[in-house]
Design a protein around this nucleic acid. Structure first.
Lengths: 280, 280
DNA sequence: CAGATGCCGGAACATTCATTCCACCGTGAC
DNA sequence: GTCACGGTGGAATGAATGTTCCGGCATCTG
């Protein structure tokens, strides 16, 4: 009897062992089998639920390749391998508590990093939670409508807010919405903003301590008749516009470093909402 | 033509609506159908994974009863109903039609904006949750140590990853850690990177589809002997360095727009951890 | 009690599934 | 150059699947 494959022992019965095995053996695998490994690691859920035909189509291989793949890892056939992917989802609830306790042991451990990591994760979650409570849907609708009518959308944000505006700039670009990012390293921001008219709109983001340039730009543009959508952290913020909408976003912080999760989630909502409104 | 069943409208497309419907209609259902309802509520996982025959056996009914059950709730057949049970278990990446409908039923208003907002909030929360599961503290320690020893930290990230690197650049600045942000609008990135030595370090962030410039920069700098800390979304990412540490971060997406919360939380952890290590 | 109605079980059916098998192709050894 | 061999795609196959259909049964109505 010949050796069926290069596998020495029994195939893994739990998902994470199998996943590690796929990762480590990927480079020694033939082309198509490596392709399957990549797809399986990236889309474990599809492997769990799909049929051999549907998975093969998505992974751009033949169904027979899936069977060969399973056998190369020591399984009897594709269904045998698929069972491992299904078990992962089955006891998701049961090993959830296990995961929690293992987390606790990590955190309870000595490492400073563990504490930092847990702290920032928690801050992110709390920020999003508070965002959900504070923001009203009517505000989003209003802001989206206002921005959708604009010819050009100016994005104003510095320091800690700059990642948010730069993300919006990227997303607007992909969505085909004309926007201009203000506050980059180029020194001609005032001139750029001087082109804004009442047919345009702007988004300004700033938190305590407010960057003075952001304040000036926002004030200047708003007094010129350009409506403003503001994201800030207090109803008493100097950024709150005469003409436009404002959102109160309070980010949780850890060791003085505030999260950006809530601002990001709101920014993404506004961005996509504008694009949706434009299509309508 | 007779009325096929007492169902008035379209069947529920998300699990919780269906579950509520099964509970409320259970008392008015015929004996065997009620039996199926009880079993389905008690063992949703088995319904998701089993075949009609296996489920029928466990619920002590005939397979045909399952089909009748599904049709009594307005589904086309058993497979149609089973899909709802499967979608409940696949929370991760793809498949957002289910998410849309499930969000709609959970969120009070039916506004498009409300759905978007809830979707992005949920994506942020799930991303952070998955980050917590995947990242090991030892990795953070290793990365922090590596970066703390560096003279200069180069930050490489484009497109969607740029907000993350730009945030790190800002935070490093405030913490007094020398860093250089690569990938901005200035065209001299290659020269900037050519100054990197093995005494420096770099952080590269990229997700599918990987920006080619990021790949090239990371490869170039790593082959020059500069250790690399990578944040990417797959163990098969071309970004994974020969020399250094890498993190797998899988961001949940909504309507194709992926969250940044997990990457941000990890970035903040690394940033502060480096500063802490420098002080020690 | 007779009839009607709706529910159920089980066989029959067409479909779809995972798997097997074989011809082809590229590659490396001799 | 030719042989051998592992990898691959695609058709063939038999098993298993979901669904349909129909006879029989219980329950309720008049």
């Amino acid at each position: 009897m010949m050796t069926l494959d290069d596998n020495d022992a029994l195939p893994p019965r739990d998902f994470w062992s199998l996943r590690n095995l796929m990762v480590s053996r990927k480079d020694t695998l033939p082309k198509r089998l490596a392709q399957v490994a990549i797809y399986a690691v990236a889309n474990p859920d599809d492997v769990a639920f799909g049929t051999a035909a549907s998975i093969a189509e998505k992974a751009e291989v033949q169904p027979s390749t899936l069977v060969r793949f399973a056998q190369a890892f020591g399984y009897q056939g594709f269904s045998d391998l698929q069972a491992v992917f299904q078990d992962r989802l089955r006891d998701r609830t049961s090993n959830y508590s296990e995961r929690l306790s293992s987390l606790r042991s990590h955190v309870a451990g000595d490492s400073k990093s563990a504490t930092l990591f847990a702290g920032f994760c928690k801050a992110a979650e709390r920020s999003v939670g508070s965002l959900r409570e504070r923001v009203q849907v009517a505000q989003i609708d209003e802001a989206a409508e206002l921005l959708a009518k604009a010819e050009t959308i100016y994005l104003i944000g510095q320091r800690r807010s700059y990642p948010v505006t730069s993300y919006m700039s990227y997303a607007f670009g992909k969505l085909g919405v004309k926007s201009v990012l203000v506050g980059s390293a180029q020194g001609n921001d005032p001139e750029t903003l001087s082109f804004a008219t009442s047919r345009d709109a702007a988004i300004a983001i700033s938190f305590t301590p407010y960057a003075s340039a952001t304040l000036n730009y926002a004030r200047q543009i708003n007094e010129g008749g350009t409506p403003l959508v503001v994201i800030t952290d207090s109803p008493f913020s100097p950024l709150i516009p005469k003409l436009g909408v404002w959102f109160e976003v309070v980010e949780a912080d850890y060791e003085g470093f505030r999260s950006l999760s809530a601002s990001m989630a709101l920014a993404m909502t506004l961005t996509v909402a504008v694009a949706e409104a434009r299509r309508g």
